[in-house]
Structures are given as structure tokens and as C-alpha cells.
């Protein structure tokens, strides 16, 4: 009897890239639910435009590059890019900006480098950074979230979201319903020589669910991130290092100057902290290779984000922190090669 002679090993675990990608999407669900409940359905609108654009851009890019589009579309990686971008941008963004950012993320962030596995930068953050520097006003305009006392209802938020999505002039009819995020307002307040306790005491910044809204989204993202760690899709090194890099300096700074420096709890549950720590920085393609390298990489992201939040002109620094540390990856990899068995360190 004759048999085929393929090389060993003859079994594999069968835990495939598409399964990994769809687990990541699944883990984003809690954060998505919190987002929609607090900020209205804007996220869903952004998600739909991002996903459609991402799939189209991926298919077009693969066609240009003369590759078979079907397996790449099925691997789910481009949907992860679309989801991360949609979660990062404000839910009121006009649809063409979302589409533009996604297309740039997929084309400039991924395919110019050779597609899946080849991109040195996190594609979603490439798209986000381009949008942020090109359209700063639109990119920092968030809806004031749902209110407990009922002055702003979810149906109003829904109408606001659609208005923003279709590009209506929001200042005319919806003034008072939009504003900057808490991190943004605190920064402007500190620039005007208010002290932190004063700002945190103010209704329109931290007393409202504006800050709490982000806190809920961060908590939900943390839950999703812990799920990914439990499923061993994300290892602990990057999230822990990102949070360490952000929280340790903020703890020290807050201890030294509690009037001006945000404390670690505020840092951890504001802006994009948890999303960045568990979902964005953990993109393996653009991260460092070894466990030790990933600790440095994550710590760098957290530290740069803290620096930008503290002294920079942008309200949240994670996009730039991730892109900067992406640049440092070859350098980190060079100096963090693990010791090979049987070799001297």
C-alpha cells in the first residue's frame, strides 16, 4: 500500500488567524455596548462605514497587488483594523471622514508595506493620526453623554449621531449637546490656571457622566481585554506594561503635585486607555517580538501617552505613542533577543 509523505508535524492545534481575529472582535462587544448606551448609536454608524470601506479597500488593494482577495478578506484582520478605528474616532464624525480614515489605514497603514503581517505601524492608528492632524475640530467633538436626570435622552443622542454622521452643521441646532472629552476639558482648564480639584469639582467636566461615560467604556474594554488574556489570545506583557508606563508616572506626579497632575485612577479610566492597552498596543504585527521586548514596548507606549497627556497639545496621546513605539520596534527587538538554550547569555 502507498501513502503520502508530507513532512512532520502531522497535527496542528488549528487555532487559526481568522479565529484569533474574531475573538478580538467579540471581546470588543462590551465596550461597544457601553459606547452605544452612553453616547448613542454613533458607534454603530461609524462601524458600518468603517467595515464596508475596509473590506472594499482591502479587496481593491489586493487586486492591485495581483493577490487573491478571498482568503485575505476572510482572515478578519481588516475588520479588526476597522473596529479599532471606529472605536477611536468620535461617534459624531461625518461618514466621509470615517471612510477616509479607514481607507488610509488599510492602504497606507497596511498594503503599501505588503499587507497582513508586513506593516510596521498599527494601521488603525495610522488612519486615526492622519484624521486627527487633518481635522482637529471634528476629531475632538464628542457628544455629551446620556444624563441620569433625563435632560438628554438616548433618542436625542440618536438624532444627534445621525446629524453628525450626515455632516449637518452641529453648532446650529445641537449646541450644548457636543463638547470636548473630560481629558480635553481638564487640559484647557489647567492651561487657564484652574487647579485640578477645582476642575474635577465642576459639573461640566468630571461631575457629569461625561467623565463617567469614558470610565464605563474603559471598564467594559478592560473586561474584554481580560477575556482575551483568559483565552490566551493576548499575553499579559503589553497591557500590563502599557498601564504601568502610564500609571506609575502619573502616581508619582500626582503625589508631587496633586493640584495639577491627574491621578492614576483618572488616567486609567479616561480616554482610550484600556482600549489602547488591551486592543491597540497588542496588535502583534507591529509590536516587539519577545516577551522582554514587549514589556519595553508597552512601557514606552504608556510613558509617551502620559507625556502627551501631561504636556502635549493633544488631549489623548495613545495614537502617537503607539506609532512612535512602532518605530522603535526594530531597535527593541535587536536588544531583547532571548537567550537560546545552551548558549551563554
Amino acid at each position: 500500500m502507498r501513502f503520502d509523505t508530507s513532512p512532520a508535524p502531522h497535527v496542528i492545534a488549528g487555532y487559526t488567524v481568522p479565529r484569533v481575529m474574531f475573538q478580538v472582535l467579540f471581546a470588543l462587544v462590551p465596550a461597544g455596548v457601553a459606547h452605544v448606551v452612553l453616547f448613542g448609536p454613533g458607534l454603530l454608524l461609524q462601524l458600518s462605514v468603517a467595515c464596508v470601506t475596509a473590506l472594499l479597500a482591502e479587496a481593491v488593494a489586493l487586486r492591485w497587488r495581483g493577490r487573491d482577495a478571498v482568503p485575505a478578506l476572510k482572515d478578519g484582520s481588516v475588520l479588526v483594523t476597522a473596529f479599532l478605528l471606529a472605536f477611536s474616532i468620535p461617534p459624531l464624525l461625518p461618514w466621509w471622514l470615517g471612510a477616509l480614515g479607514t481607507a488610509l489605514a488599510v492602504l497606507l497603514g497596511k498594503h503599501v508595506f505588503g499587507g497582513l503581517g508586513q506593516n510596521p505601524f498599527n494601521p488603525a492608528m495610522v488612519g486615526y493620526a492622519i484624521l486627527l492632524v487633518s481635522f482637529p475640530a471634528e476629531m475632538t467633538r464628542w457628544p455629551v453623554p446620556m444624563d441620569v436626570d433625563g435632560t438628554r435622552t438616548w433618542s436625542e443622542l440618536a438624532r444627534l449621531s445621525f446629524a453628525g454622521f450626515y455632516g449637518a452643521d452641529l453648532t446650529a441646532r445641537w449646541d450644548g449637546y457636543t463638547g470636548a472629552t473630560a481629558l480635553d476639558s481638564i487640559r484647557s482648564g489647567l492651561d487657564l490656571r484652574y487647579t485640578l480639584p477645582e476642575l474635577l469639582g465642576r459639573e461640566d467636566i468630571a461631575g457629569t457622566p461625561g467623565a463617567r461615560g469614558f470610565a464605563w467604556i474603559n471598564l467594559a474594554a478592560l473586561a474584554g481585554g481580560l477575556y482575551l488574556m483568559l483565552r490566551r489570545i493576548v499575553r499579559w506583557h503589553i497591557p500590563v506594561a502599557v498601564l504601568g508606563g502610564l500609571l506609575v508616572p502619573s502616581f508619582i506626579a500626582h503625589g508631587l503635585d496633586s493640584g495639577n497632575a491627574l491621578g492614576p485612577a483618572m488616567q486609567a479610566f479616561s480616554g482610550a486607555t484600556m482600549l489602547a492597552a488591551f486592543f491597540i498596543a497588542t496588535d502583534p504585527v507591529s509590536a516587539a517580538t519577545s516577551d522582554r521586548g514587549r514589556l519595553w514596548y508597552g512601557a514606552g507606549i504608556g510613558l509617551i501617552a502620559w507625556i502627551i497627556r501631561t504636556w502635549g497639545d493633544y488631549p489623548d496621546g495613545f495614537a502617537f505613542a503607539v506609532l512612535l513605539m512602532n518605530l522603535a520596534v526594530p531597535f527593541i527587538d535587536r536588544y531583547t533577543v532571548p537567550r537560546i538554550y545552551g548558549r551563554q547569555p
Binding site: 508530507s6 492545534a13 488549528g14 503581517g117 516577551d291
Partner: peptide, 14 residues
């Protein structure tokens, strides 16, 4: 599991 495997690019997951 091996027979049904489709090779994809490395995503450097580690």
C-alpha cells in the same frame, strides 16, 4: 487539522 491547513502570512503573534 494538518490536512485542512491554509497557510497565511505570519502575524508575529509570538
Amino acid at each position: 487539522s494538518r490536512l485542512g491547513a491554509v497557510e497565511l502570512p505570519c502575524i508575529r503573534c509570538g
